[in-house]
Design a protein around this nucleic acid. Structure first.
Lengths: 231, 231
DNA sequence: CGTCCTATGTCATATTTGTGTAACAAAAAC
DNA sequence: GTTTTTGTTACACAAATATGACATAGGACG
């Protein structure tokens, strides 16, 4: 169900994008398309794709440049990137890898090859950060089973609270403003009152119970922070 | 939050500009208005806005054309642009994004949506300064986690004291008058008594404790100074 | 299709915490 | 010893956050 991965295709030529999109959709992926780096950036912020397919040659901001930019920003740094390069631009391989892309494919390629590589990259990048259980004090969040336990006792969390906690546990000791949290947990361009964050923080704390609610800390005038250190 | 962002509104219809201006000012933005591309251009040069809201349909130079022009000029190339388009001009979306605008909003829109999108765009275009922790003697201030520790022991600080300390630690060995401190820490346009600074200095010293309060030094007849050297 | 849920966002209201000021004490300067 | 300047404290009010209640949207399920 929700396991279908979202792929962003960035290429300035519409027909190529279409071809790729069709191939991927047949393989069970969800596709979003962009024809420029700028548009791609907005779409990444809004849609949070699991993977970016990036054309090496593009008018305006080039693929490599864009890849580098994505890597720099914490928010987009761990989205896997596969670079599409035309034959003969072999050394783009070098630059691409320098920019931190995860794989590159030389055009022309078969849909089959594309899907195979995409799977491979997802397989080796996905387990890295997102699928490992995180644990603090006696609180454990397991992304695989989608479960949270406090000293081995299961905790009931709503979807939003789960994502919030997951984000917090993977970004500890750092103060986030309400709008940053909205970006990271809710996704970009949702228009939701900032105060709504408070309410979900409240729900999360309540669910964590006395044993663990100290982990979610208020930073007056700024926002919230998740930390095992007490003040 | 120190400096409110400046937004230039470009639309040929005054009432619409007004409406937008009101909405944005309520949300804490500063507004400048222009009714044509030409006027807009001078205003951009003079006022250096942080963001341009651009109507797609305008007599004379159209919005897209203007956007393109702005992008070409190195001086104005990285000012974010949000395009306002009327409903039905859906494909202007394409052209707009090609011209390098950062987002587009379809009229009619709610003030709320406008503000939300504006925020989102500013958030993702404003480069976040890399904030390094500062440390003196055994006192450490970490802007990321928004935390202060004295020999690894957390210290409780109110928002103002935090900003004050942050300012001091990044501007050491220099005496500041009370009014300078008000400017730098409180922000330029607030009216508060100068003596208020004394009180916050007091609070800061108290929070720092015996171990570190020597760092905040009184400079008689002048103001205060933060320094590891003793007088 | 309705009905019963759950999850979510928003509001109104409490509660907590921060801030600026004034008044007085203490220290320097003169 | 008087005059400035700074330190300290208490306090009222302002601002930010916490909390509980409510409305609604969408899903599951009959």
């Amino acid at each position: 169900m929700s396991s279908s991965k979202k792929v962003l295709i960035v290429d300035d030529e519409a027909p190529i994008r279409e071809m790729i999109a069709v191939a991927l959709e047949m393989a069970g992926y969800e596709c979003v398309e962009a024809d420029s780096a700028n548009q791609a950036h907005s779409l990444i912020v809004d849609n949070k794709p699991d993977m970016v397919l990036l054309d090496w040659m593009m008018p305006g901001t080039s693929g490599v440049e864009f890849a580098r930019r994505l890597r720099k920003d914490e928010m987009t740094a761990d989205i896997p990137i596969i670079m599409l390069t035309a034959k003969g631009e072999e050394d783009s391989k070098i630059k691409g890898l320098e920019a931190g892309v995860d794989d590159y494919i030389i055009k022309p390629f078969s849909p089959r090859e594309l899907v195979a590589r995409l799977k491979a990259v997802l397989r080796r990048t996905t387990p890295k950060g997102i699928e490992e259980p995180v644990s603090v004090d006696g609180l454990t969040l397991d992304p695989i089973s989608h479960r949270v336990t406090s000293d081995s006792t299961p905790i009931e969390l709503g979807p939003t609270e789960f994502r919030l906690l997951q984000f917090f546990m993977t970004h500890q000791d750092r103060a986030y403003s309400r709008s940053q949290l909205l970006d990271m947990v809710w996704g970009g361009n949702v228009y939701v009152e900032e105060r709504t964050v408070d309410v979900h923080i409240r729900r999360l704390r309540k669910a964590l119970g006395e044993r663990h609610d100290y982990l979610v800390q208020t930073v007056r005038g700024t926002g919230y922070r998740f930390s095992a250190k007490v003040a």
